[in-house]
Simulated scan of single mutants.
Amino acid sequence: MEVDLNCDLGESFGVYQLGNDQEMMKYITSANIACGFHAGDPITMRDAVLLALANKVSIGAHPGLPDLRGFGRRNIHISPKDAYHDVVYQIGALEAFVRSEGGLLTHVKPHGALYNLCAVDMATAEAVAEAVYRVNPNLYLYGLSGSRLIEAGRKLGLKTINEVFADRAYMENGTLAPRHLEGSVISDEIASINQVLQLVLDKRVKTITGTEIPLQADSICLHGDGIKAVEMARIISTTLKDNGVLIKPFF
């Protein structure tokens, strides 16, 4: 049994620092680096790429909505045409830094509100998947497990990664519980670890209403911006290994 551990990184901007990228790199196998739309800037992007290369962590683009003020988490209307062009643009920006440092871009994972929209709206999902495919059909596409984005990627022949979350609650339809709902973000360490073990070992998850649903867990997202993010990453990594799970990237 094996699983990939991924984290959204490079999400600082200018003088504003978010997360501890250097420490998180020690516990993950794949990094999704912000591309300047919801967070990140040229220096931050290059620094994150260098950290990933130094730690032998797979590098992916993390495109989001053009929403620095809202960190890409606000529900801003975007047409499929705009989604396509914005994603192509952001992949290209990060890939330039990766290639200039002798690395290889391996995957793409949308961020925040764009990620959630792709999970349920097929037109947007198809536009984002098409953007990834047209840039490089060999890139892996991360999406919410069982979502429209996974479906759209597979239709194009992309290699897809069903992603699950250690610190987010689920609705009964498999989508993430909206952040405004109480209990949508799991802050309790034991609850988070138990959810990870259930997802990886049983391929199931308990929803916010208490029912259980099946979910494929190819990769676990570990958010890097929490107060205890590094400690949780260490505990989750250790717990998985103690339960016989091999932690490795898919690339």
Rank of each mutant, 00 (worst) to 15 (best):
N136M: 07
G70M: 06
G72S: 09
S100L: 04
R99W: 05
H85T: 12
V120R: 00
D47V: 11
P42N: 00
L117M: 07
A113P: 04
Y133P: 03
P110I: 06
V120H: 01
D41E: 00
K109H: 02
G92E: 02
N138E: 15
M45E: 08
I43K: 15
V128H: 01
L50T: 14
T44G: 06
R46V: 03
A83V: 11
G60P: 06
R74L: 12
Y84Q: 04
E126I: 04
A113K: 08
P110D: 11
I91F: 13
E101I: 10
L50E: 13
E95S: 12
V88E: 04
Y84P: 03
I59N: 05
A131N: 03
K81Q: 04
N136I: 01
L94S: 04
Y89W: 03
G70A: 09
F71L: 06
Y115S: 08
D67Q: 14
L104G: 02
V128E: 05
A125Y: 00
G92L: 08
Y133E: 00
A125N: 06
G72T: 13
I43V: 13
V98G: 01
P42C: 11
D121V: 08
L53D: 14
N75S: 06
A61E: 14
A123R: 12
A93H: 05
K81P: 00
G92W: 03
T124V: 13
V135E: 05
E101N: 15
A83T: 12
A127M: 07
V88C: 14
I76T: 12
V57Q: 05
L68Q: 05
L114M: 15
Y133K: 10
A125K: 10
V57K: 14
G60Y: 01
R99V: 12
G64L: 11
A93P: 11
A125L: 05
R73S: 11
R134L: 05
G40F: 01
E95W: 09
D82E: 13
L104N: 00
H85L: 15
V88S: 06
R69K: 09
L50N: 10
V128I: 10
K81T: 00
A48T: 10
M122P: 01
I59D: 08
T106S: 15
R99M: 05
D47N: 14
D86W: 10
G112A: 03
I76G: 08
A127G: 04
R134Q: 10
V88I: 13
D47F: 06
D67P: 12
D121E: 15
G64R: 15
E95L: 06
V57N: 13
R73G: 10
D121A: 15
A48I: 05
K81G: 00
G112C: 01
A93V: 12
